[in-house]
Design a protein around this nucleic acid. Structure first.
Lengths: 193, 193
DNA sequence: CGACCATATGTCAAACGTTACATATAATCA
DNA sequence: TGATTATATGTAACGTTTGACATATGGTCG
């Protein structure tokens, strides 16, 4: 069992769902394609960590709804007690920024603007999640039960929003420096496409 | 050529160095082990993007010092003009936090404290980098040449510091909520090890 | 002296992840 | 009607990354 398997279990312990829905649910927190999730769910079922029932649908294709078993819950609890693996980030844009002195200002601006668009999309998605579960969150976070699924979701979404907002903040800071320098030097037509 | 190859090139266009030093240099921005870097450098040399000379050392084992070629520089410039791949983050701790309601408060606290230790270590490393290159950075960032290696390094280190600090901020926020609830409820001996 | 660590390079197998190929249903849109 | 999109599941080839094994030098610490 790898980290993705436990990520799937940590969703299935809260709510039973299909591989397709798991993919969508986990996407913002652990990138994985359906081609990785479907075979993994089969392996997890063979290992006895999850089980599924076939649910027929009239408006959409039929689906397999997975649930965590007792063994799955125990495996997840064991994993929780282990130290976490190191955080892994691979941000190609940051490497391009590091090498951006080899290009021109427009190129650097384009990379930053692309990132801003991606951040805004992600922000809308996360705000949607926040609003969807806001009824679970009490107005006063400190009054919530810290060992409840609602609180765990709450701090996870808070963290995700914080990450995206700090990304946006940095992009805008660099863009502002670019604008200042373009105005000051007069090079690189400021209003070009 | 993959992203890692261009990350290596983006260092080698600034400064020639050994595979070992490259590994240490890009570690904070793109995680890669020596077992990935050494074969990749060979492939890049075969492709004509880098070349190396053998440097004999008396106090340490001899090393291969790699430099970027003209072809390597051109390849890097081409890559720069392409849109960036999506940001990938895999944070096992965040998944554990999401499932932490299955465990106890001490376990959640331990995960957060482990992360804080890792952040502090990273912070010291980044502050070391910042101070090491601070002479390259002018007091007024907006007065720097935005297409200089110094400026690119500056904004990269700023971003890295921002990421670590926001991580620390969030961990401390959750720890504070934990402390408040433990004091209020009286469960979970507050001063246990 | 022996253990361990930092430096330095390398290979290989296994695990992990992405892309492309494949199929099927039902809704929407032109 | 035909094209596209969202839903839903699956396999196979390929590329990426890690972990283990391997070797060697020279310094430090007990």
């Amino acid at each position: 069992m790898n980290s993705l398997a436990y990520a799937l279990l940590s969703v299935l312990t809260r709510e039973s769902m299909s591989g397709y829905d798991l993919m969508l649910r986990i996407q913002p927190f652990w990138q994985a394609k359906h081609s990785q999730i479907y075979p993994l769910l089969s392996k997890m079922e063979q290992a006895g960590y999850v089980e599924h029932i076939l649910v027929e649908q009239s408006d959409k294709p039929d689906k397999k709804v997975y649930s965590s078993t007792e063994a799955g819950l125990n495996a997840l609890r064991d994993w929780l007690s282990q130290p976490s693996a190191d955080l892994v980030t691979r941000d190609e844009m940051l490497i391009k920024v590091y090498a951006s002195w080899l290009g021109d200002r427009a190129e650097l601006r384009r990379h930053l603007e692309d990132r801003i668009v991606a951040c805004q999309k992600r922000l809308r998605h996360l705000e949607g999640l926040r609003d969807k579960y806001s009824s679970d969150f009490q107005a006063d976070a400190s009054a919530m039960d810290l060992l409840s699924p609602a609180f765990s979701s709450y701090i996870l979404i808070r963290r995700s929003l914080q990450i995206v907002n700090s990304d946006l903040e940095w992009c805008n800071w660099v863009l502002e420096l670019l604008r200042q320098q373009e105005l000051a030097s007069g090079t690189d037509a400021p209003s070009s496409t």
